[in-house]
Simulated assay, not measured.
Amino acid sequence: MLKPILILAAAAAMIAMAIWLMPSQSGLFVGGVNILPWILPTVMTLALAEGIILRLSSRTYDWKAWFASSSDAMIRQFVNLIPLSLVGPAFALAWTHRLFTIHLGPAWSFGVLLIGQEFCYYWLHRASHRIRWFWASHAVHHSSNNFTFAAAYRLGWTSKLSGEAIFNTPLIWLGFRPDTVAATLLFSLLYQFWLHTELAPRLGWLEWILNTPTHHAVHHASNEAYLDKNFGGTLIIFDCLFGTFAQQRTDTPCRYGLVKPLASYNPGFIALHEWAAMVRDIRCAKTWRDGFGYILGPPGWSPTPQKAMNAPRHSPPDHLSKEAMDRHVSPGKS
């Protein structure tokens, strides 16, 4: 009985720290209330509540993963204060040479912004799985071996370094203000928070339009049949259009995490392990071309592919092909 009490006390203390010790940030006002400082404590509390519900229903819950994700998120708040942004100049250039100036007001302006943001996010997310430079940051989000709310805010510390926000530049060039685009992306990420749970039911006909917990569970699965599927943020329509949609199969339960599971709960290791692996590969590269391949190629890219070792793409899930094992692989404790 003492252990659960200590876990909840430590979690409550960490949430309190998130409320009182977070550095000041720019505001995001909804109805005159700045919601930005309250986002992290709120999602941490909801993730804690999910853990309690699962334990009360006699299901397992990885409390170490909750603390790892929460530590990652709290440290990220401070890292984001560093005035480093690879995409800032690109945003400024796009805004200076914008095609139009679009003021939000008419219904069509919101429609264009929301659909445009979803389109940009789809390609950002897809590139984050297919270009190792972006994957080095995004692998953090997939490192949790559980599909819970706590995994939703495990996002790492290096998104500014990777420059992944560059995919939003077309919206700014079209004529939407950079802060408006950033706020729209934030609301998309807030929507995606509730997708990270197995407690939610299927949503019927909405499953054909929206990104749902069922669809996102497939995205987080490391089964070969599910790799690189369902990249949408709030909608699933672009996955259907571009051939990356996959239904969750009753005969193939989702196995979450990286293909080679990451066993560490160390926030620093979680945040930087894939960057370290990429640097090691670059240092071993024999040519400049190989070096760039390790940066811009897909995860698992090699200058000497061993085709003879590749198993059929549709081999049983417990015997993944070498190609599938190479993609999304990250070092972890065995």
Rank of each mutant, 00 (worst) to 15 (best):
H196N: 08
G175W: 00
L189P: 12
V181L: 02
L195F: 05
L174N: 08
L195D: 04
G175V: 08
F176M: 01
S162R: 03
Q192D: 05
K160Q: 10
N168L: 05
G175R: 03
T169A: 15
L190H: 12
S162Y: 00
P178M: 00
D179C: 02
G163N: 06
A182L: 04
W173P: 10
A182G: 01
T169Y: 00
H196Y: 02
T169W: 00
V181D: 04
E164N: 09
V181G: 02
L185Q: 12
W173D: 04
W173V: 04
S188R: 10
I172Y: 02
F193D: 12
A182V: 05
G175F: 01
G163I: 06
L190T: 12
S162H: 04
T180Y: 06
L174C: 07
Y191S: 11
E164Y: 01
S162D: 05
I172L: 04
G163Q: 06
L189T: 13
L190V: 15
A165R: 01
P170M: 02
F187K: 08
F193Y: 15
F187R: 09
T169Q: 04
K160G: 11
Y191Q: 05
D179R: 05
H196D: 02
T180P: 08
T184L: 07
W173H: 05
L186N: 11
L174T: 09
A165D: 02
R177I: 08
L174Y: 03
F193S: 15
L186W: 04
G163M: 02
A183W: 06
A183H: 10
L195N: 11
H196S: 07
K160N: 13
P170S: 07
L190M: 15
W173G: 08
A183G: 12
F187Y: 08
L195Q: 07
W194V: 10
G163W: 02
F193M: 10
I172W: 01
L189N: 14
I166P: 12
R177N: 14
L174K: 05
A183V: 11
K160V: 05
L161N: 09
W194I: 10
W194G: 10
I166Q: 02
K160T: 11
L171C: 09
T184K: 02
F167I: 06
A182Q: 04
A182N: 03
Y191H: 09
P170V: 03
S188D: 09
Q192W: 00
S162M: 06
L186S: 13
D179V: 09
H196M: 04
L171M: 14
L186Q: 13
S188W: 00
N168C: 11
A182I: 03
A165N: 06
L185N: 12
F176S: 04
F193N: 13
A165M: 03
L171P: 14
G175K: 03
L171F: 06
S162W: 00
L190F: 08
L174R: 02
L174P: 13
T169V: 15
I166N: 09
I166L: 12
L171T: 13
F176D: 05
Y191E: 07
V181A: 01
F167H: 09
A165H: 04
F187E: 09
F193P: 15
A182Y: 01
Y191N: 10
L185S: 11
H196L: 03
F176R: 03
F187Q: 09
D179F: 01
G163Y: 01
F176T: 08
L195T: 14
K160W: 00
K160M: 05
F167V: 12
L189F: 09
A183I: 12
Q192K: 15
K160I: 02
D179W: 03
F187C: 13
L161D: 06
